[in-house]
């Protein structure tokens, strides 16, 4: 199949970027989007041009490394899929695509489609953990947890940190990312001890990073590859007021 690609090219964080057009006529519908870019890059390198910088690692939707915007869709035109899980069969033969990086003030563009999401690590650093040192743990079955709570905690903990929630939000809010971690830990008996401090510090860091506020448009939930629910944002807000 063939596709016309308009890809965001930007030399560095400070450089000005623009779309460049590429035409590919030897594609296979089973190729994934990163495989299509691999293919294009091989051509560019041989033509003596700078290949497109894009992040991609596990290529099975779990590492959270990939992700860009395709024709305005965060990650993918498919529902709840990462960019690497998107195959060319999702597009029409001959279609024209626009590929650009996730855009948010707190995610500076490093080069082309690569962004810097270290802000997420800095939010986690402010309390996205249970302060248990190696060796302190009691016997595992001494902390009972209902099946339902374990499943809900998992639902929140499944976040892959890709940043799609931020990219989809008109305010570039990180409420879904932050809320999911707060909810995951607040649900567990072993996480309750630090709940107050955690929510205060993480929310403060989220604001300090320049993420916007949440206005409950649910845009994040609609694109999240792990189906993380905005109910966790409600939990975060409740925990915050409690604190």
């Amino acid at each position: 199949m063939n596709l016309t690609l308009n890809i965001w090219r930007q030399e560095s964080a400070s450089a000005k970027g623009k779309f460049e057009k590429y035409y590919l006529d030897d594609l296979d519908s089973h190729m994934s989007v990163p495989e299509m870019l691999d293919h294009l890059n091989e051509k560019l390198i041989k033509e003596g041009k700078d290949p497109i910088a894009f992040d991609s690692d596990c290529r099975e939707g779990i590492c959270g490394q990939c992700g860009f915007v395709i024709n305005g869709h965060i990650h993918s035109p498919e529902k709840h899929a990462t960019t690497c899980q998107t195959h060319l069969r999702s597009f029409i033969d001959g279609e024209e695509l626009y590929l650009e990086p996730f855009r948010a003030k707190a995610f500076p563009i490093k080069k082309d489609l690569c962004i810097d999401r270290k802000a997420f690590d800095r939010i986690i650093a402010k309390g996205g953990y249970i302060s248990v040192n190696t060796g302190q743990a009691p016997e595992a079955n001494s902390i009972l947890l209902s099946h339902e709570t374990a499943e809900s905690a998992f639902d929140a903990a499944a976040c892959i940190g890709c940043g799609a929630c931020v990219a989809s939000c008109k305010n570039a809010s990180a409420a879904l990312f932050t809320g999911a971690k707060i909810a995951h830990l607040a649900m567990l008996p072993q996480g309750k001890m630090e709940a107050e401090k955690r929510v205060k510090n993480m929310v403060a860091q989220m604001d300090a990073e320049g993420f916007g506020s949440c206005t409950f448009t649910k845009a994040c939930e609609a694109v999240c590859p792990q189906h993380i629910s905005i109910a966790h944002i409600v939990t975060m807000n409740r925990e915050y007021w409690k604190a």
Partner: peptide
């Protein structure tokens, strides 16, 4: 397993609440 549970790893549970 004790360490991971204490860290908040949400392992699968029986309906009784046990791992």
């Amino acid at each position: 397993i004790d360490q991971a549970v204490a860290q908040g790893v949400p392992f699968a549970r029986e309906y009784s609440g046990y791992l």
